[in-house]
Design a protein around this nucleic acid. Structure first.
Length: 580
DNA sequence: GCCGTTTTCGGCCCGACTGTTTTCAGTCG
């Protein structure tokens, strides 16, 4: 059982215990444990086998035992018992805005409600309002919450959320009296999917800004409207519905509020614990002690007051950044301007929308110095994969375009299918004509974990392969990763010097940030690629830079930060090595 | 259930908002 699954089960146990009315601390221990497992960089089965679970923070004796049973046997009787005791509909009810474990339990105990449908019916019949502690308004909010839940998927891709957030910010920017405005929350930390949009404003006159916020175009519901905090549901591109919160503080409070609302929750707790060690109290308004009050112009001042280097938002997950910041070992993170070119782009030769020349000009306009074209290989007929003859045609075309470009080069690549047995999709003489190869899995997703791992490792060991494309094949919020032992894949890449792509397309973000950290630890070189299928898509590599930053990567960890001359030389060296 | 340079027991982040309340519980982030 993989760690995502184990983490999901631990998390669900925490929730089920909440519904039983268990102590919140005990419940949180399961939620915390789930997070610890999810963010584990290593292979969970290995850690369990080598008896190193006890070294993982937030995993104690009880959780260690349960995780071990789960990993070794594939199931956990304790969890199954708990599930049997709890109707599945209660978990759905928990997802309603304003419904927590106490109210779900109350409604279940008093009215026997165990599903969204029954809850909606009870609200419409006025039964819910009759319960002591609830009332007409709560009943109405529950109906609205159910309606919202049915329309909205729970999380939204980071690019869609960012576009919606930008629209809100533009709308707000016209309000009077705004000193500063920033995005916070998971959007500022650049998580791959986003639950809601958090905006923070510094102002001395919040009321008109709040009034403007709840009346912005696209607002479909006002959940709360207070002096310092308001909450709305807003509609974005493709009828995406999202929650958005606005907080307003004064300018002196702004850095503390920005830090607090950026999170993560775990990072905040670590920060407060550190403040306590300094005899100080940290909250969203101030950092202060009994005899002093620490002023801050920006977030860096807060970190400085606690003897920490400034921690970029992407690292704030309580996965070692506090220790690194305290000892001056924070990485100097990759920046968007470090990227000099990208390697995984498609043209009209396969399933892209633009020609080689159009793609090159678009890349050049973005300030890039080179572009790798990697259309699909012949087996992928649905994507118009290239026969050896069409490979030759495309390469001739690239030569013609290259002759017209100054200070810019198109590299001849291919996104070569990894066939079910791990072989590549062309004979060696064709493979030898490319400047580089991206090897990817596009078929037979239902192979066993062992088969899939062996298949990918075999491709990695093939000297023609320059880099592995989208390592797990996941499509965020749509399709799970195929089963694969990433640890084995990364180790093979480390041994052979094969690079691993960070597929930056916001639908993929694959390799993910957790495994970027692992790849770096193993010495694997990463490549940020947009997987562009149109000229406009090339700029998507920015989302891969976000992943790299969350994965603690520095410029030297990423191949496509090299200059054109260095890249040309490095690719040529690899090619001559693979031919010999 | 986890954790420990004040603790192996007794803590565990905390403030805003809402609704249903006459002083607070529940939810959220």
């Amino acid at each position: 059982m993989d760690k995502q699954k184990v983490a999901a089960i631990l998390d669900e146990i925490g929730t089920l215990l909440e519904l039983q009315g268990e102590s919140s601390f005990r419940c949180n221990a399961y939620h915390n444990g789930a997070q610890a497992i999810e963010q584990l960089e290593e292979d969970l089965a290995t850690v369990v086998r080598e008896g190193r679970l006890a070294d993982v923070p937030r995993i104690g004796d009880t959780l260690r035992e349960k995780i071990t049973v789960l990993v070794t046997t594939g199931h956990l009787p304790y969890y199954e018992e708990l599930r049997k005791k709890t109707p599945p509909g209660l978990l759905d009810m928990l997802r309603i805005q304003g419904m927590g474990p106490k109210r779900v339990k109350l409604l279940h105990d008093k009215l026997g409600i165990d599903s969204l449908d029954k809850l909606e019916r009870a609200c419409l019949d006025g039964e819910v309002a009759k319960i002591k502690g609830l009332g007409e308004k709560t009943q109405q909010k529950i109906v609205e919450g159910i309606h919202f839940l049915r329309q909205m998927g729970s999380r939204v891709r980071v690019d869609l959320a960012l576009a919606l957030a930008d629209r809100l910010r533009e709308g707000l920017a016209q309000a009077p009296g705004i000193h500063r405005m920033e995005l916070c929350g998971s959007l500022r930390r650049r998580r791959e999917t986003i639950k809601d949009i958090d905006i923070l404003i510094a102002s001395d006159d919040p009321a008109p800004i709040m009034d403007r916020f709840v009346a912005l175009p696209g607002v479909v519901q006002v959940i709360g409207h207070g002096d310092t905090k308001s909450s709305i549901v807003v509609e974005g591109e493709g009828r995406t519905l999202m929650n958005a919160d606005l907080r307003i503080v004064n300018d002196a409070q702004f850095p503390f509020a920005l830090n607090y609302f950026t999170g993560s929750k775990e990072h905040n707790i670590a920060m407060r614990v550190r403040a306590q060690e300094y005899g100080l109290k940290l909250n969203e308004y101030e950092l202060s002690g009994p005899h002093r009050h620490i002023a801050a112009r920006d977030e860096a001042d807060i970190y400085k007051a606690l003897d920490l280097a400034y921690i970029p938002p992407e690292l704030r997950e309580d996965t070692g950044e506090m220790e690194a910041a305290a000892s001056g070992r924070l990485p100097h993170l990759l920046e968007i301007g470090d990227i000099k070119g990208v390697f995984h782009c498609h043209t009209t030769y396969s399933d892209g929308a633009n020609s080689a020349e159009e793609m090159a000009l678009a890349a050049k306009a973005l300030g890039l110095k080179y572009l790798g074209l990697a259309d699909h290989s012949q087996s992928l007929t649905v994507a118009n994969g290239l026969s050896p003859q069409r490979v030759r045609q495309q390469q001739a075309e690239i030569d013609r375009v290259n002759a017209t470009l100054k200070g810019f080069t198109i590299f001849k690549g291919i996104e070569c299918d990894i066939l079910p047995d791990g072989q590549l999709d062309y004979p060696d003489d064709v493979l030898a004509t490319f400047d580089y190869l991206v090897a990817s899995v596009h078929s037979h997703f239902n192979q066993s974990r062992e088969e899939m791992t062996a298949r990918i490792v075999r491709a990695i060991r093939n000297p023609h392969v320059t880099m592995l494309g989208h390592a797990t094949g996941r499509l965020l919020l749509k399709r799970d990763a195929y089963p694969v032992d990433l640890e084995a894949v990364l180790q093979a890449a480390a041994e052979t010097g094969t690079m691993v792509e960070i597929n930056a397309h916001p639908a993929r973000l694959d390799l993910d940030w957790v495994h970027c950290k692992r790849a770096k630890a193993l010495g694997v070189k990463l490549v940020v690629n947009p997987d562009a299928h149109a000229a406009d898509d090339i700029a998507l590599y920015r989302y891969g830079v976000d992943v790299a930053r969350r994965g603690w990567l520095e410029r030297g960890d990423v191949f496509n930060t090299k200059t054109l001359a260095e890249t040309t030389q490095a690719l040529a060296a690899r090619r001559s090595a693979s031919r010999s």
